[in-house]
């Protein structure tokens, strides 16, 4: 029987933006910076849509947690083809542990058979939320997925691991997080963008869910990484070998 799939998406600074650290060390400057759906979340939405198109999923629900603008990210998922959205409204910095708890609250109501998330957000680079969600639900997890084969009672997930690839079999319901090579996300067509405007987005105020959202980590300072000294262009490979021997990196 086709199952419901829930996909979590995050609004982040666009992947092509080179962020700047504020001179006072209070964070990175996100004023007037282009924001988009996190690239790994796009891959998650795409995978859910492909499973629905293959007749293995009945419905794809996109969930995002954040301020009013997070609705735009949900709308992007709907324009790609998701059926409906859930927007958990919350202000300020919400850490993965709190996100996982909020997602669990939504999942307890929605009862999906599979949850797909990106493996990490390209802003905080934490790579935690999917694993934490699986822990809180007591579901098995298939992280860093490059292939997802959904069966009736289980899902085979091929994972990108340090030495190559590994496949695990997970009993459903399960949590999967996407790696880069899982798929190539589609672009939303103009008619689909128009249609997405009519699809429903349910709004939930995070405060009503009774979850402590206070960050456990305090960011004391945000700094620029150490800059590298300017380099030199050399005339020939022989000159390069000479320089490398001088600096001692080549014997």
């Amino acid at each position: 029987m086709p199952i419901k799939i829930l996909v979590a998406v995050k609004r982040v600074v666009d992947t092509n933006v080179k962020v700047r650290v504020k001179p006072d060390g209070s964070g990175v400057d996100l004023a007037n910076v282009k924001m988009s759906m996190n690239p790994f979340c796009e891959i998650a939405v795409e995978e859910a849509l492909r499973l629905r198109e293959a007749g293995k999923a009945s419905e794809v629900v996109v969930v995002s947690i954040g301020p009013a603008q997070a609705a735009e990210t949900i709308r992007t998922g709907l324009a790609m083809g998701a059926d409906r959205g859930v927007h958990v409204k919350a202000e300020g910095r919400i850490e993965p542990l709190a996100v996982a708890k909020l997602l669990k609250a939504v999942i307890d109501r929605e009862a999906p058979g599979l949850v797909i998330l990106g493996k990490q957000a390209i802003d905080d680079d934490l790579n935690q939320t999917g694993q934490m969600l699986a822990a809180l639900l007591d579901w098995p997890q298939g992280t860093f997925a490059s292939k997802v084969a959904l069966g009736d009672a289980d899902v085979d997930v091929t994972r990108e691991v340090d030495g190559g690839l590994e496949t695990v079999r997970l009993g459903l319901p399960a949590v999967v997080t996407t790696d880069l090579r899982l798929n190539e996300p589609r672009y939303a067509s103009l008619p689909n963008i128009m249609k997405a405007k009519k699809k429903p987005i349910e709004e939930i105020d995070a405060q009503t869910l009774g979850i402590d959202l206070a960050p456990r980590h305090t960011v004391l300072k945000t700094a620029e990484p150490a800059a590298r000294k300017g380099g030199v262009t050399l005339g020939s490979p022989a000159e390069l070998v000479g320089k490398l021997k001088e600096t001692g990196v080549l014997a």
Partner: peptide, 23 residues
Amino acid sequence: ATSTMKNALPRVAALLDVMQVSE
């Protein structure tokens, strides 16, 4: 922060109700 540990440690953190410090 190898792929094995990035897989398992956030699960540990959530079960202990703590945030993970990553990388």
